[in-house]
Design a protein around this nucleic acid. Structure first.
Lengths: 252, 252
DNA sequence: ACCTCGGTTGCGTATCTTGCAACGGACGTT
DNA sequence: AACGTCCGTTGCAAGATACGCAACCGAGGT
């Protein structure tokens, strides 16, 4: 829609993967280096990009400035923070907070696990709906018609042997999730990790976000993972209360 | 340099201050609303902006995705994290990590104080060099010629009764800072807050960033603040070691 | 049912962006 | 020390592109 803007934004993505030279960047987005230069200059003037000496460009401070403002916008994040930090501290496992955003899951907070094994995730990163516990929780919270619509629209990319691959299977899973009040990702996204997730609710009982714990399979087997569910639920309940949930609510 | 990009970036700034309507945004940057619409669409397609229902635009997830990548780039941040978190935990005061970026200070990490009084600062935010303790530390670390150049270029905006207002006074202060190894902001930036700051050094003894503690005056008087210096120095030393500093170094 | 407000589209024009080619400065090499 | 290469930078001209206009649409509110 706006060519130069589009190119500039793509450029930022390229820069994120390391400070390259002008020509490299130009090639990456398929334009003349002059164009890149001028885009960079504009980005730089807004502090979106920073030049480090010569032939070295990096992402600039405006990005994290804006990002923090964007995060502050998301009230769930603030109201859930304490409960999730506790959960992370007590269990030592990686805790995520995620919300639904047009057909995907977006991580809006993360508490790193205390083990050596690190997950490839990041605040702001997006993940698919069909193979994440948070995805299931978020979609399961929607009215049945919407669930179907989403389930049919998903591209069921196969990531592991356990990945769900059909709308039917997904919808059946969602029913269970809605029933139980929590979701499981049994190594459906990454081979060596499994997760449990539960919703954080707001004043009207509506689901604001999903919190999850991710545990490497080498640390805990499936039963061990399920044994964490009560702790998870205690944390999400606390987070919900902080988010205005009153406990009665029409939402189950 | 690139008009549409420039407008789009300005737009993001506007959006950060709350989700407005199309016309409001249009007025803010002085263009027709059609233009805003198209810019927003492009931004949206890259997840820089998110539309929330109708008449509500917010900053999107790409921002915090990129921001996190940008922060991961900054090695000082990672290597200092542990020491600063400890300092924050032990003292309960707000801790900042900042670095110098063309004529300003940029906060690259922040640990919130445990008291009710909150500071108006944010990771990614910029602050002046002349009235912050971190600013003094960072400039004091530069060779004398560079210090002078910077001192003369500063616009000495007066923010409180104690704000330094002349290059001469600033340079004299810098001499002291370089001597002592730490800097003080005695309510020169905000009336009710004073800070101490010390440098974090890298392998060659060069200053990578400045760490600071900010304390509301109601909690601690000036002497109380100075009494915190040893703890601060212990933390910055630890952070320096983690950042490759070997202790010898030519840097004092 | 009307009116207002916000968002959306099609279109022609003027502007802005683009790519080219040539320059300049910094390294590194022979 | 001189040369060659690699990057970044500038001026310019051509044409694509983004812009503003005006009209349309849909939702709320009166």
């Amino acid at each position: 829609m706006s060519q130069s803007l589009d190119r500039a934004l793509t450029l930022l993505g390229g820069l994120a993967r390391g400070g390259k030279t002008l020509d490299e960047l130009a090639e990456e987005i398929g334009v003349h280096k002059t164009t890149v230069l001028r885009l960079l200059r504009t980005l730089e003037s807004h502090h979106f990009v920073r030049r480090e000496g010569t032939r070295h460009y990096r992402l600039g401070s405006a990005l994290f400035d804006l990002a923090n403002q964007a995060l502050e916008d998301r009230d769930v994040r603030r109201s859930s923070h304490e409960a999730l930090a506790e959960l992370n501290l007590r269990t030592g496992h990686t805790v995520h907070l995620a919300s639904y955003e047009d057909g995907e899951v977006v991580y809006i907070d993360k508490f790193e696990g205390h083990h050596a094994v690190r997950m490839y995730s990041r605040v702001g990163k997006r993940a698919p709906l069909h193979c994440t516990a948070v995805g299931k929780v978020l979609v399961a919270a929607m009215p049945r018609a919407k669930r179907e619509e989403i389930a049919r629209a998903i591209d069921y990319v196969v990531l592991t042997a356990n990945t769900i691959t059909t709308p039917e299977a997904y919808l059946a899973e969602l029913d269970q999730v809605a029933e139980r009040g929590y979701a499981v990702d049994n190594a459906e996204h990454e081979d060596f990790i499994h997760c449990v997730s539960a919703p954080v609710r707001g004043a009207g009982g509506e689901v604001l976000a999903a919190a999850s714990m991710s545990v490497p399979k080498v640390l805990l087997d499936y039963d061990g993972l399920l044994a964490l569910v009560p702790e998870l639920l205690a944390a999400t309940e606390k987070a919900s209360v902080h988010s205005g949930w009153t406990g009665n609510g029409k939402g189950q």
